[in-house]
Simulated scan of single mutants.
Amino acid sequence: MKTIEVTGLTKDYGNGKGIFDVSFSVDKGEVVGFLGANGAGKTSTIRHLMGFSKPESGKASIMGKDCFKDASLIQENIGYLPGEIAFMDNMTGHEFIKFMADMKKIKDSSMADRLIKYLELDTSVRIKKMSKGMKQKLGIVIAFMQDAPILILDEPTSGLDPLMQNKFVELIKKSKENGKTILMSSHIFEEVENTCDRIVMIKNGKIVADRDLEIIRNDRNKHYEIIFAEKNDAEIFKKRYPESKIDENRIIMTGKDDINRVIKDISEYKIEDITIRHQTLEEVFMKYYGGEK
């Protein structure tokens, strides 16, 4: 039995908006990155998993239970961070954490205390006076403090500075070590690459890719950027590699060309600079999105 299973999930909001025949699953202890442009259907799918929306057809289940019918039972085992968090602005961070802990029947506050310290969050501040980053930290504390076996996180590092983003990555890694099952939507590709086992991509409400991250790493094209001393040499070189792009004396090419062959061909010319790297996850994502952001 899959920990999270989505089968043929459909909800049509009209004008091409919604989710259509969405199917994917997450195994116990797996970390899956859920990628897609704004409006692609990530949040809508997550809302179905949380039992907030009833599908027109298809099914979402967690631990074998129907996400809509058994929502309250399922939510007891999920740490959830929504994309748009509803706060009680007149409360302090401390008061809100206590309010949520009481609602979730969390008796032990030690996990919340550790998270507050780790994220360097001042909980004495009233929520209405908190910055976006502080509010996001507060949301992370709420999601993780019940030490739930399943985490569903919608854009978890939105508004965090790079230092806190790195701390969050370490928090996910630790959670993974502890056997938690995590579904995380994110726009930060480095974050996904550093934490996830698999990525599921959604475009226009439909799944366009579901791939193991290790396979993507091994299958990525190489990206070459070569600066020739002479513009004429760049033009001659381009004829050997017609798929490459040329800009003055700079050649940019992406592919699975044998690196030894490329270097041998380059050695015939005077080169000012060369950069060779693998495609980034973002570049792979853009390939599936056909240039759309």
Rank of each mutant, 00 (worst) to 15 (best):
K2I: 05
I4D: 00
E5R: 11
V6F: 10
L9G: 01
K11N: 03
G14F: 13
G18S: 04
D21R: 08
S23V: 07
F24T: 00
D27C: 00
K28Q: 11
G29M: 01
V31C: 10
G33V: 00
A37D: 08
N38D: 06
G39N: 02
A40P: 01
K42M: 01
K42W: 04
T43H: 06
S44M: 13
I46M: 10
I46R: 06
E56K: 08
S57K: 15
S57T: 13
M63I: 09
F68S: 00
A71D: 07
A71C: 05
A71F: 04
S72H: 10
I74G: 01
Q75W: 07
E76W: 09
E76D: 09
Y80K: 04
L81W: 00
E84F: 09
A86G: 09
A86V: 10
A86K: 13
F87W: 07
D89V: 07
T92H: 02
G93D: 00
H94R: 12
H94Y: 14
E95H: 06
F99Q: 02
M100C: 14
I106V: 13
I106G: 10
D113R: 11
L121I: 05
T123R: 02
S124K: 15
K128F: 13
M130Y: 09
M134I: 06
K135Y: 06
Q136T: 05
G139L: 00
I140H: 04
V141L: 02
A148F: 12
L151Q: 05
P156Q: 06
P156W: 07
T157L: 07
T157N: 08
G159Q: 07
L163F: 15
K167L: 10
F168W: 08
V169C: 12
V169P: 08
E170K: 11
I172Q: 07
I172N: 10
E177G: 14
E177N: 15
G179E: 06
I182E: 08
S185V: 01
H187C: 09
I188L: 14
E191T: 03
V192F: 07
E193C: 11
N194E: 13
N194V: 05
T195H: 04
V200G: 03
V200M: 08
K206Y: 10
K206S: 12
K206D: 04
I207A: 02
A209L: 13
R211N: 15
D212Q: 11
L213S: 12
I216K: 06
N218F: 07
N218C: 11
R220T: 08
K222E: 10
Y224K: 03
F228E: 05
K231N: 13
K231E: 15
I236E: 13
F237V: 07
K238E: 11
K239Q: 14
R240V: 12
R240E: 15
Y241T: 06
E243W: 12
E243F: 13
E243A: 12
E243S: 14
S244R: 06
D247Q: 11
E248A: 10
N249L: 05
I252E: 12
I252W: 09
M253R: 02
D257M: 14
V262H: 01
I263R: 08
K270M: 12
K270V: 14
E272P: 02
I274V: 14
H278N: 15
T280M: 01
L281V: 04
E283G: 04
K287S: 15
Y289D: 05
G290V: 03
G291D: 01
